[in-house]
Design a binder for these strands. Structure first.
Lengths: 234, 234
DNA sequence: ATCGACATACCGACTAGTTGGTATGTTGTC
DNA sequence: GACAACATACCAACTAGTCGGTATGTCGAT
């Protein structure tokens, strides 16, 4: 499922640390068997910064600290790496739905709003670090590689399906307009986040992203009758 | 300003028609002076389909029906073409804010909702035809070309600034929570649209985009007290 | 009206460097 | 020794860009 940003940064840091180690003598090489994971992590970092097509296999190898031979040992092609990296992106987000403090709240609406707050808190720092790997990649590759498109779709779907149970429970408790579905609202949440990343990239500043996600939070509060219109509810 | 989709398709069709004419003998050439516009229109079409980096100068020239020599006569580099095309994208959207039927409505909120309906009606057909040139391009180029990033930012800004007066007028008439600004809500509208395009690209189907824009419309109606929560307002 | 000088638009061949990938060799682990 | 993991050298195709050239338009002088 899509995290848009990992709950922690260690994987990306590990890719860079491993690259440094790989630059030295043989006894400073990363342990065998770690190349694949490092290539995937390197793809996450490099594609978020400059897009899929502009990212060369050489760049990914350099960032991962392995050679092209190792790359093509693990992946039949650049496209295969992209598909595997999209799957890796999905896996990378799991902790966010399992470990974050808001998942323990009793009220499903509090969990949903907690999730949005969690996403808000992530909108900080360098643009490439909080934006979405699959959202970036699908923008350019959707028509030229159906395998990549499908892998990105699967990642977005996983996110929405992870978010939908809390939404469904909130609909059960609070009610919602009859054309509002849990999966539809989850998709809307994801849509606002993806749009927030696009806008943040135009300004290279997360403030604009936080503004739009704040609107999203207000919408969810209003939708479930938890206030949100401010002074007009008094 | 950003249209995300042109109000009409003729410019893209003209680029293809002109290409056919240019393929013949000298007396079937397009009139002199049309190359630049055709290159820009070709960029709009090609980049929306496959992204900026994967689009080669040769492909743009083929789509425009001119040679590389003519390309580099008009543009110093591929990047210059991108910047000019972003500006062209802004210009291409003007009619939407000046000619669409909803701009004549008296109530500013009706005009805003009319605009959203107008955008909803555009979410149809092949994905590359209703998605956004600058939103696509900035995803990959924001960090590697500050000139492109700035040109995309200018286009998004122009859209928001064109939408903001109606929002400000609606705030004047209906009120809004005190932290809601006209420009902020305009940015939220654009954010939802950009996110809708990303999601549509994952599924290669505009339905998901229409779903999220419908949520946007409901939010705007609720925000200005125009109902929208459905049965719970009765 | 004609013409030469100059400017602009466009063309097509060419280039240096880069790219995704292939072929072959080396190393580490069992 | 076998084999997976990884490394290095090499490759054909491709890319953004260059360059010398042709075609057409404009303008001032006659």
């Amino acid at each position: 499922m899509t995290t848009n940003q990992p709950p922690s940064v260690p994987a990306a840091t590990a890719a860079r640390d491993a690259a440094r180690a790989g630059g030295g003598t043989p006894d400073q090489r990363a342990p065998r068997g770690s190349a694949r994971a490092k290539l995937i992590a390197a793809a996450h970092a490099t594609v978020r910064r400059q897009g899929y097509s502009a990212t060369t296999v050489d760049q990914i190898c350099a960032a991962a600290g392995v050679t092209k031979g190792a790359f093509f040992h693990h992946f039949a092609s650049k496209e295969e790496l992209a598909v595997a990296a999209a799957e890796g992106w999905t896996e990378r987000a799991r902790p966010m739905f399992e470990l974050a403090p808001h998942v323990k709240l009793d009220d499903p609406l509090d969990r949903l709003l907690g999730h949005i707050d969690f996403r808000l808190s992530m909108l900080d720092g360098p643009t490439e670090d909080y934006t979405c790997f699959v959202g970036t990649m699908v923008q350019e590759a959707y028509a030229t590689s159906d395998r990549i498109r499908a892998a990105c779709e699967a990642s977005i779907n996983a996110y929405c399906e992870a978010l939908a149970p809390d939404i469904a429970a909130a609909i059960e408790v609070y009610g919602a307009p009859e054309d509002v579905t849990a999966i539809g609202l989850a998709q809307h949440v994801q849509s606002v986040l993806q749009g927030a990343f696009v806008l943040a990239k135009t300004t290279n500043d997360p403030a604009i992203a936080r503004g739009t996600v704040t609107h999203l939070k207000r919408y969810v509060r209003m939708l479930f009758g938890r206030g949100g219109a401010g002074s007009r509810d008094r």
